[in-house]
Amino acid sequence: MSAGVVAGQAARGVAGIARFALVVAATFLGLLAITFFIGRVVPIDPVLAVVGDRATAAVYEAARERMGLDRPLLVQFFSYVGDVLTGNLGQSISTGRAVVDDLGRFFPATLEMATVGILIGVALGVPMGVTAATRQGSWADQVIRVLGLLGYSVPAFWLGLVGLAVFYAGLGWVAGPGRIDIFYEGLVEPVTGVYLIDSLMAGEWEVFRNAASHLLLPASILGFFSLAYIARMTRSFMLDQLSQEYVTTARVKGVPERRVIWRHAFYPIRIQLITVIGLSYASLLEGSVMIETVFSWPGIGRYLTVALLNADMNAVLGATLVIGSVFILINKASDVLYRILDPRARR
């Protein structure tokens, strides 16, 4: 390849990255605007919350000024953006700590559960989708189709409860709510905050087993929802691929069916699938709100719901911001990946 071509590609790459950064920034600003707006329309008066409702008008005004609430809305917004960017999300009234610290402590638990969930979803969903497409109309296809539709119609929190009743109370296959038994708590020094990794690094097998047994059920339930979505999308991508002329071309060449399916039909869609998996991962972070509540899982989702019930707005908005940002980032990143990996889009 000539130097000119390389330089041209690099320039396009830089332009692409710049555009990407712009879109992400705009979306992020949108998210901030929404949380800012929500924070302002709360019927609870933030000043009253600080000074109490028996304060005199003068005290009230002073507090209002001190909190910067007398400034124009736009100025308040910019100072809010500044606060967020410098990591100042205010205090949580329920934990009494800075919201940022809380989020840092709770996030690894959510990440752990969602990650194991997506791994389950991909490991099962992709082969299921491929099978359904290659045997269109067979019973396997029907089962996968029904599973997919169930993924859109079963409430996650309900499935969590039923799962607890069956697998924990009934069969005793898994541990109950919570992240780890009290007995094992504090045995392992938190390094990453992800118990599976921390316990492995410490060589504590017992702790690892206990944590895994707590994790299995909630992660599998999340995995079920991502499986449903991934299998459905894989199936529809594959059906589209299998009707392509170049798949017939491969068959004309005498290529074995397995290779036709995986190398010729599946390979081109793996990039689309990355986008789907990214979306699914992002939605698991979101879905963890319900699952964490059911399983008393000390992650961001539960932090958010507890804060919601206590009208702890700083904590609510902080958690919304974090989940929202991760969601946006995953979303956009899978878009970019698509562009980098697909030779057709690289043009």
């Binding site: 705009a26 949108g30 709360v42 019927p43 919601l308 969601f327 946006i328």
Partner: peptide, 20 residues
């Protein structure tokens, strides 16, 4: 697009938290 790339459930939760 900004609205589309937001997590729906979380956003709904936050709105309800604000509105009561």
């Amino acid at each position: 697009d900004i609205f589309l790339s937001m997590p729906k459930l979380i956003l709904a939760l936050a709105f309800v938290a604000a509105l009561g």
